[in-house]
Nucleic acid binder design. Structure first.
Length: 286
DNA sequence: AGCTCATGGCGAG
DNA sequence: TCGCCCTGAGCTG
């Protein structure tokens, strides 16, 4: 279940359990068998994450993992190690094992391939080296809805459907507002918020976005229970009352994904594109 | 048993 | 814009 916090959490978990010693590398399912064998028995140096991409460095080689929509990487620290279902890649040492299922990508890559992947990504709120202005430069000139731009990995690597919906709600921004109508101050605030929310999610292994003063339990309502496991304002709360104003939460399709928002808290903007400095002119200038 | 959906992203048209 | 890939969970029948 993969937004960027999951990938970063996995990088930490893999490094903690396996780094600095030889690992057993297999593909019980068989689809990664030849490559898994190439690094089998070699020491695992470290695992690191860029957005939703995970790189596991083993024996001087690297495995690129992208979980996609259905992928999962799970750890177990006990002795019972049956292979259940379709396990593409299993990492194992004396004390732990990790099973990868259903990844969109799992392949051995060289340094050039890693560079090609990371070069195509925008700033990752979970990385110290992130430069948020690179994301802003894509947003400021675009007529694309901000709700779509936030899903673009060149704008903010690691942000997915939950963080997209929640951060827009927290900043009261209509997901359909054009990127070029967003103010720099709003982008800066969104970025700072993503850094905080995503770091929190890495630490907890779940996405919580609801401020204490809006907590449903504290306000005498029933606690929310959702498969994704976090406390959220709008994500997958279709037709339920907004935790802030009580309006029915709406949903629609945007770019093939489900979008959730509160039409009252996130009222459509009346801003106009400044005629004196249209976005297109700015892009041409240097 | 079979269908639908999911925190993604790719390629064909 | 659409279909498709990956896998498992949660329905429906």
């Amino acid at each position: 279940m993969p937004e960027g916090h999951v990938t970063h959490r996995l990088a930490i978990g893999l490094t903690e359990r396996f780094a600095g010693a030889p690992v057993r590398s297999t593909s019980p399912q068989g689809r990664f068998a030849a490559e898994a064998a190439e690094v089998d028995g070699h020491p695992l140096e470290a695992a690191e994450a860029y957005g939703k991409n995970l790189f596991v460095h083993v024996g001087g080689r690297s495995v690129h993992v992208h979980l996609g929509l259905a992928g999962r990487f799970t750890f177990a620290d006990d002795d019972a190690r049956p292979v259940l279902g379709q396990v593409r890649w299993r990492l194992e040492n004396d004390r732990h094992y990790a099973d990868l299922r259903g990844p969109q990508a799992c392949r051995l890559v060289d340094g050039a391939a890693i560079a090609a992947i990371t070069d195509a990504l925008g700033p990752d709120p979970l990385r110290e080296d992130a430069e948020p202005r690179a994301g802003w430069e894509r947003v400021r000139a675009s007529a694309t809805p901000i709700g779509l731009l936030l899903m673009d990995q060149r704008v903010a690597a690691g942000v997915g459907n939950i963080f997209r919906a929640e951060v827009l709600f927290r900043h009261r921004i209509d997901p359909m507002m054009q990127g070029r109508l967003l103010r720099l101050s709003e982008w800066d605030a969104i970025w700072v918020d993503l850094v905080g929310l995503m770091h929190d999610a890495v630490g907890k292994g779940r996405i919580d976005t609801v401020r204490p003063d809006h907590d449903p339990v504290a306000m005498g309502r029933a606690p929310r229970v959702d498969r994704h496991g976090g406390e959220v304002y709008v994500y997958r709360r279709t037709d339920q009352p907004c935790l802030v104003c009580g309006t029915r939460v709406r949903t629609r399709d945007l770019g093939g994904r489900n979008l959730f928002w509160c039409p009252t808290c996130q009222r459509p903007s009346r801003r106009k594109v400044p005629a004196s400095r249209p976005a297109r002119t700015r892009m041409v200038r240097t």
